[in-house]
Amino acid sequence: MGFKLLSKLLVYLTASIMAIASPLAFSVDSSGEYPTVSEIPVGEVRLYQIADGVWSHIATQSFDGAVYPSNGLIVRDGDELLLIDTAWGAKNTAALLAEIEKQIGLPVTRAVSTHFHDDRVGGVDVLRAAGVATYASPSTRRLAEVEGNEIPTHSLEGLSSSGDAVRFGPVELFYPGAAHSTDNLIVYVPSASVLYGGCAIYELSRTSAGNVADADLAEWPTSIERIQQHYPEAQFVIPGHGLPGGLDLLKHTTNVVKAHTNRSVVE
């Protein structure tokens, strides 16, 4: 069995187990497998329904001669939608809004960016022009300005110390501490036991640490421990890039980060 097929099978099995364990909360999309990078042309966006009122959005972007996937989250909030992270750029984010209108038909009224990198804030200006209120932590807003990236308009308070959590509509926002970046936030959907790890969490097929220019490698494993301790009931975990899975993604990420750190020390 090929690795790609095995990865998709694991996603399907995880979703099936969740649907059985929580039949009222989960209505997993039966329309197909989780979209992969090879299936999404740059400039297009796919939506994948995880649970009743919960979707991931998947886009792709060219970077350094390669094409990478990027995940975000959409959560229903009454007759409105909360968006977590842009679709990595203005063109993708405009396509995301169009796809949401086509498939869901509810307005996106608020959006949260989970850290300051372009795959999370690139497209904020498109959201703002569409009347979406954009939010991020003060740290993310400051770092985005320093980096020359787009800056969300509103500040999220109460997320300055490791372990801080605040309720934001249908989700809980959690600051686990520094990891992929010093400002990275985690998003949890309690009604569906869905954990969105953003770039602080890796997919299972990833074996290298990737972009760690703004990471705190020493603190990252401790931050992941905080996530595990705060959300032990999480059933569906979405990484910032690639295929979702279960809580095993947290341990896998820790292993990859520690291996990278150990290699760096040896070198």
Rank of each mutant, 00 (worst) to 15 (best):
L13S: 15
V28N: 12
P69R: 08
A98I: 08
S22T: 11
S113M: 07
A19P: 14
V189L: 05
G65F: 06
S264I: 12
P41T: 10
E99K: 11
I20D: 15
K258Q: 13
E157L: 11
E99R: 12
A213I: 12
H241Y: 05
A51H: 07
V28L: 09
H154W: 12
Y12H: 10
V265W: 14
V256T: 08
S191P: 07
W220E: 03
M1V: 06
G158P: 05
L13Y: 14
E147P: 05
R141C: 06
L83V: 08
I40S: 07
Q103G: 11
L127G: 01
T109I: 10
L5D: 15
L83G: 01
S38C: 07
P244M: 08
V45D: 05
K4V: 06
I224H: 03
S22C: 10
S16G: 14
S113N: 06
A136D: 04
L10K: 14
R128Q: 14
A25G: 13
V112E: 04
A59I: 07
G65I: 07
E80A: 09
P23K: 11
E203P: 09
N184A: 01
S113Y: 03
H115C: 00
K102I: 13
R141E: 02
I201A: 03
Y188F: 10
G198Q: 03
V146W: 13
E33Q: 11
G72F: 04
V112L: 11
L6C: 15
R110W: 07
S155K: 11
L185A: 02
V171P: 02
P69N: 15
G148T: 06
R46A: 09
F63V: 14
E233G: 12
Y231E: 02
L127T: 00
G240C: 02
L9E: 15
E99M: 13
I100K: 00
N149F: 11
P107H: 09
T93P: 00
K4R: 06
G163M: 05
A111Y: 07
A59S: 15
A136F: 02
N184H: 02
G89M: 00
V166S: 07
S160Q: 13
A213K: 13
N211A: 15
P239I: 00
S16C: 15
Q49A: 12
L204Q: 10
V28S: 11
H57P: 03
V132M: 04
E225L: 12
G177L: 04
C199G: 03
A209P: 10
Y231G: 02
A192Y: 07
A19N: 15
D77K: 03
D183F: 01
L156D: 00
E33W: 10
L173V: 11
I50R: 03
G210A: 06
I50Y: 04
G148K: 09
L217H: 05
L143F: 10
A234Q: 01
L83F: 03
T86E: 00
S16H: 15
S205V: 08
D79I: 09
T222A: 12
D79S: 10
G158D: 07
L143P: 04
T114E: 00
L250S: 02
